[in-house]
Nucleic acid binder design. Structure first.
Length: 477
RNA sequence: GGCGCUAUCGUCUAACGGUUAGGACGGAGCCCUCUCAAGGCUUAAAUACGGGUUCGAUUCCCGUUAGCGCUACCA
């Protein structure tokens, strides 16, 4: 049975890279008919925040992918401590009474970073005595040193990996406050939850040697591993909230007006490829196409700048997803965006407008700037010079608008009647169609760039159109 | 410093020894057109460097360089 997990630690908002890890796990589980587990890795009590936890759940909920089982490491402390104890009793770990922070850089530069011999070789009786006396200690894994050997595992992405035990330090299992470290808690839970595949960021690739040692010490099956290339900033640096700000949060994309399926699509294309040149893919297509073999090995740049936090390709993909959506469904998404922006409207109206703007918005939020004039009672002020058509003057604009007012007053207010009526009105005036349409468009929309004229008139309705044309004529006085 | 990983257009990527090195985003141009979009077409743009192996290297090996990661009683 395939079981995978996503294990975020609640020390910040849901990071774009974490979101991708979640998505890859989810896709893998769904593709293989396995189980997706969410595990909150909250062993670092000092840095955990409730706010962060909420923001992670908000982000995951927005993605809308879901999971099958949910756990919290802080509720599984006993399990972690039991494993630590078991490993200690087997002699595979030892107490290190060195006060924290005392070693670090110095030891490393002196080549003593692997372990503290005094502590590693401390006699059991003395160790027990000092522990019983209440002296604090960290519990460290006793990496085999008697003979050099290689720790090996096969990574589904990076291939066969090996590392000499001579290059693996005696890492901590328990902190001196008795709390488990990440390595211990993670492996204890992975073993207990019978995780079959660990799919996570490449920043854990070298940690995996320690984990293999731990699984073996716990006499647990070693899971399969698949490490993911990292997502990096345009300067190549690892994305971090400190350095790069909110661009690394999934909320930035949600709040900008992304469709979750488009965001998922974008993230999938960072470090994975269906190998057949497909770009826009639905969730179903992604699930169908996903495999660990399609994951590549080099880090991927998320292309953002100070001015624009959105990757241009993500933006394009979002526009593609918007375009591909049934209009009725898009209208449902647009309504809350409009209401949020303060427009008073209803789903009926939005349904009428949606087909006119569907291929003109890249973000859901664009609706507020692209379609505002459909929902506004009064047009925002515009320069009357905008009303003047190409190779024309104010007099022509006024003539056109007067004619339009007359024509529109007496025509069936539907696209198929409006077009011929306005075209023949134009030739009656001796102006080109474009010279006729532009003043009307500006009068009615308040700007030159807008959706196709006749549908726009139709949706707006006769009354508003005539009213706005009248206002435009006044402006031209 | 030690160890590990990586290296194809600006960016995301395809090409599992033989291709005019393909696609996409973004850029430029053209077409379509009532404006704006959308769409279509065209175009510029890449195998980090040096050695091997091979009839033949983007592809395999070694080195260099560069980047990244780990090296915490963070995760």
């Amino acid at each position: 049975m395939l079981r995978v997990r996503f294990a975020p630690s609640p020390t910040g908002y849901l990071h774009i890279g974490s979101a991708r890890t979640f998505i890859f796990n989810w896709l893998f589980a769904r593709h293989e008919g396995g189980t997706m587990i969410l595990r909150i890795d909250d062993t670092d009590v000092g840095r955990n925040t409730e706010e962060s936890l909420n923001s992670i759940f908000d982000g995951l909920r927005w993605l809308g992918l879901g999971w099958d089982e949910e756990y919290k490491q802080s509720e599984r402390l006993q399990l972690h401590k039991q494993l630590a104890e078991a490993i200690f009793q087997k002699g595979l770990a030892y107490r290190d009474f060195t006060p924290p922070g005392e070693e670090g850089e110095k030891a490393r530069s002196e080549g003593q970073w692997l372990f503290n011999a005094g502590m590693r070789e401390l006699a059991r009786e003395e160790s027990d005595r000092r522990a019983a006396a209440g002296e604090p200690f960290a519990l460290r894994f006793r990496v085999p040193r008697d003979r050099e050997c290689e720790v090996r595992f096969a990574d589904a992405v990076y291939g066969d990996q090996s590392k000499s035990t001579a290059d693996i330090e005696d890492f901590a299992l328990l902190r001196s406050d008795g709390m488990p470290t990440y390595h211990l808690a993670s492996c204890a839970d992975d073993a207990d939850l019978r995780i079959s595949h660990i799919v996570r960021g490449q920043d854990h690739l070298t940690n995996t040697f320690k984990h293999v040692l731990l699984f073996e010490a716990a006499r647990a099956a070693v899971p399969q591993f698949a490490h993911l290339p990292l997502l990096v900033a345009p300067d190549g640096a690892k994305l971090s909230k400190r350095r790069h700000g909110p661009v690394v949060s999934v909320m930035t994309y949600r709040d900008a007006g992304f469709l979750p399926q488009a965001y998922i699509n974008f993230l999938c294309l960072l470090g994975w490829s269906p190998k057949d040149n497909r770009e826009r893919m639905s969730r179903e297509e992604l699930t169908e196409a996903f495999s660990l073999e399609g994951i590549n090995r080099s880090n991927a740049v998320v292309n953002f700048t100070e001015e624009d936090p959105i990757d241009p390709k993500a933006l394009w993909l979002n526009s593609q997803h918007i375009y591909a959506m049934p209009a009725a469904e898009l209208a449902e998404q647009l309504l809350p965006v409009l209401r949020e922006a303060g427009f008073r409207t209803d789903i009926e109206k939005v349904r009428q407008v949606t087909p006119l703007i569907q291929e003109r918005i890249k973000l859901l939020n664009d609706v507020t700037s692209v379609a505002d004039f459909f929902f506004l009672e009064e047009l925002p002020p515009y320069d009357s010079a905008e009303l003047i058509p190409q190779k024309g003057d104010a007099a022509m604009a006024a003539a056109v608008l007067r004619q339009a007012r007359e024509t529109l007053a007496g025509v069936d207010f539907a696209h198929d009647a409006l077009e011929p009526a306005l075209r023949s009105a134009a030739s009656g005036l001796g102006v080109k169609a474009g010279q006729m349409f532009l003043p009307i468009r500006v009068a009615v929309c308040g700007r030159k760039n807008a959706p196709p004229l006749f549908q726009t008139l139709e949706v707006l309705g006769r009354e508003i159109c005539l009213h706005r044309i009248g206002q435009a004529l006044e402006k031209l006085q």
